[in-house]
Nucleic acid binder design. Sequence first.
DNA 1: GCGACAG
DNA 2: ATCTTGTCGC
Length: 229
Amino acid sequence: MALDHATDPFPGWDGSLAGARTLQAQLAAQVNLDDGFVTPLRTLAGFDVGFEDQGAVTRAAVVLLDARTLQPLESHVARVPTAMPYVPGLLSFRELPALLGALAMLSHAPDLAVIDGQGIAHPRRLGIAAHFGVATGLPSLGVGKSVLVGRCEEPGPERGDRSPLLHRGEQIGWALRSKPRCNPLIVSPGHRVSLDTAAELVMRWLAGYRLPEPTRLADRLASRRDQPR
DNA sequence: GCGACAG
DNA sequence: ATCTTGTCGC
């Protein structure tokens, strides 16, 4: 996928942490929470990040899947020098460059991107999945394994049970029981996906595991401590 | 001021 | 995220 419309993910950023937070607030205003993806979805892209050389290299994996069969069509791994430490709330400034590198390796743009981490379930409503969506213009949503901000009730024990994740009086996502006896997933919209749809889509992509297929397959690629070929 | 804090 | 094998529970 040629990045013809590639926009700078950090426009005008001065490199400071304060500047990063200010930029997040600005970019968050561009997030669209109305469903704006093609129906029916044809392709999905799952993304995840891992590290090599004690963190010196950031490795982003992407897997393109057929949205109907959930079968993988192609996958790639991008490696870029790590430029930022992990700072809670600023994850996208550390991992987005690698994710965009992986996206650029796809032969075609996906109809929707599924990213490991939060969408709008973030202090300033711009978790990495939302940031990715605004930067690329692609519909996106986040699937996290734990909460960054907000509170929620423990969802019921059945597959599909869910409870709203609340923060400052508004719903920012869901705690979703994707599999019995497993900790709930934290699902939130990224860009061009609504709150309700985000949870429904993730349920649709489950195949017997805690993680939905797009992120499960990308995870497997991103965290292999071997075959750097 | 003290904790909490995606990956 | 990463360092790391077997082990307990369903």
